[in-house]
């Protein structure tokens, strides 16, 4: 297998794919990405024309809200499409043999803990910064640990649940 480029690693991270992509999977991901790009491009062009017509005929304020809202909906729909298309191709699945299960579960725990710690740090800092900017004064960061803990637990549990759901035990077929 060729060495993975940084860009490809970013693409994998973006789509939430754990393992390296082989040539077939890469071709599939590219095909799905191209489909999503072309469809969203055409839809956004149509939306732009509709917005222009709206701005000229109806109220321009409505048009001002219409375009960003519909673009956001299009992006959401494209995300759902790419997720479902990749799930159908089993690109997200983490395949293991029955005897590898304990090791895989241990790895999931470690990744969930890391995700939880990162979530907790961001949760604490985010809450502190948010409160500080609202009150326009300095605050003690450590006072915001409950918010951090809450976000950390959510991130950790989300990471663990997502990975356990993707775990697939494959029967040996020698």
């Amino acid at each position: 297998m060729r060495r993975e480029s940084l860009w490809l690693r970013f693409v994998r991270y973006w789509y939430g794919i754990d393992s390296k992509l082989d040539e077939r999977q890469l071709a599939e991901v590219e095909r799905i990405g191209n489909n999503a790009y072309v469809i969203s491009g055409v839809v956004e062009l149509i939306l732009l024309v509709i917005t222009l017509i709206m701005a000229l005929t109806v109220k321009s304020e409505i048009a001002l809200w219409f375009l960003p809202l519909t673009i956001a909906v299009t992006m959401l729909l494209m995300s759902i499409y790419t997720y479902l298309a990749m799930r159908k191709l089993k690109i997200f699945s983490i395949e293991i043999t029955a005897d590898e299960r304990p090791k895989a579960i241990r790895r999931i725990w470690i990744k969930a803990t890391v995700a939880g710690i990162i979530g907790a740090v961001f949760g604490t800092l985010g809450s502190a910064l948010g409160t500080s900017s609202v009150q326009n004064s300095l605050v003690n960061v450590l006072d915001f640990w409950p918010q951090g803990l809450w976000l950390g637990v959510c991130c950790g549990a989300g990471s663990a649940m997502g990975r356990v759901q993707r775990l697939k035990v494959v029967k040996e077929d020698k």
Partner: peptide, 14 residues
């Protein structure tokens, strides 16, 4: 197995 072969050559089992 398919899994073992896949791992040897660095591709997915599918």
């Amino acid at each position: 197995s398919q899994m073992e072969l896949a791992r040897r050559i660095g591709v997915a089992r599918q």
